[in-house]
């Protein structure tokens, strides 16, 4: 598509970098992104403030009612807890992986596998855990047979917050490995050797050099994990087929219920809330990387 503009471009014009001609070739891309990304997003933002075609704060007010606030709170708890679990376990796993041979099989395998597992979500992931710890699941049966312990417990925890936390960790940990491993690679062996040479013990090295150097990428990665969990929908949608415990599921309910009038508007308001939360997290992420790590280049 961009090739169409090449006809007008004669060699005599190549020196004029600021002419509009070459920019026109970007139109197809800009128009496409405008229609399928910008318009939907703007629709959500604008509609969140409309009621019967007029400006109104009634949708926004709904966001501060008990049910919505509870769902938001649970979403935040789910995202924060899985970000924390993912960040800590993922960081330890990354370190253990790189502490082996840096070009070894372990490391290469771990990176490839993490790439796969971090994309693992939705239907398959939900099924995977249902068939593991759900009623009659493999681990559930094995534990019951061996210790008489029923991990499923009949309480349905798998289909509620604890289950979501467990299942989300499955993609959060590998995502952490992917985003944190490059930072660990940036930890040069010379720093360790220089610190040792200057009299630092292993513990002092980590306190004075290792942890301060790794803290910004660690926190930044954790924020990414938070945003990732907060925006996730598919896995929760399968696992919790009814109910609106977290924000994305509440949006689903609002979108699919055609009975109650005004639910469509609620969907816009809820989506707006999601945009705002994720945008704030990403803004903090960028701000933090700039501020806290002025020595990073």
């Amino acid at each position: 598509m961009a090739l169409t503009a090449t006809g007008s471009d004669t060699p005599t014009r190549t020196g004029r970098r600021l002419s509009v001609g070459p920019s026109l070739a970007l139109l197809p891309f800009l128009v496409f992104v405008g229609i399928f990304l910008i318009i939907p997003t703007v629709t959500v933002i604008v509609q969140g403030f409309l009621e019967n075609g007029r400006f109104s704060l009634s949708n926004i007010e709904t966001l501060f009612t008990g049910t919505v606030m509870r769902a938001l709170w649970k979403s935040v708890v789910l995202s924060a807890s899985t970000a924390l679990i993912g960040a800590v376990i993922g960081a330890i796993a990354s370190y253990l992986v790189v502490s082996g041979n840096p070009d070894g099989l372990l490391r290469r395998g771990a990176v490839s596998l993490s790439g796969v597992l971090a994309q693992f979500g939705g239907v398959t992931l939900a099924f995977a855990w249902i068939t593991t710890v759900g009623l009659g699941g493999m681990l559930q049966r094995a534990l019951e047979a061996a210790f008489g312990y029923d991990v499923f417990g009949g309480s349905g925890w798998l289909y509620d917050m604890p289950g979501l936390i467990l299942v989300y960790s499955y993609f959060q940990i590998p995502l952490m490995v992917i985003v944190f491993l490059p930072a660990l690679n940036g930890l040069r062996p010379q720093w360790r050797e220089a610190a040792t040479n200057l009299g630092a013990s292993t513990w002092q090295f980590w306190k004075e050099v290792g942890i301060p150097v790794l803290t910004p990428p660690f926190l930044a990665s954790a924020l990414l994990l938070f945003a990732n969990a907060f925006a996730a929908y598919a896995t929760a949608a399968i696992l919790v087929s009814q109910g609106q415990i977290i924000l994305p599921l509440m949006i689903r309910a609002a979108l699919t219920s055609e009975v109650v009038l005004g639910q469509q508007n609620l969907a816009f308001a809820l989506a707006l809330e999601m945009v705002v939360v994720v945008a704030v997290v990403m803004w903090v992420y960028n701000w933090y990387l700039k501020r806290a790590a002025r020595w990073l280049q």
Partner: peptide
């Protein structure tokens, strides 16, 4: 005697300065 008790000063090929200090 471990490296951190040897009381030696070493200059490496490159990139040995602690970046956050």
């Amino acid at each position: 005697v471990p490296a951190n008790k040897r009381d030696m000063g070493m200059v490496f090929q490159a990139y040995s300065l602690f970046p956050h200090m």
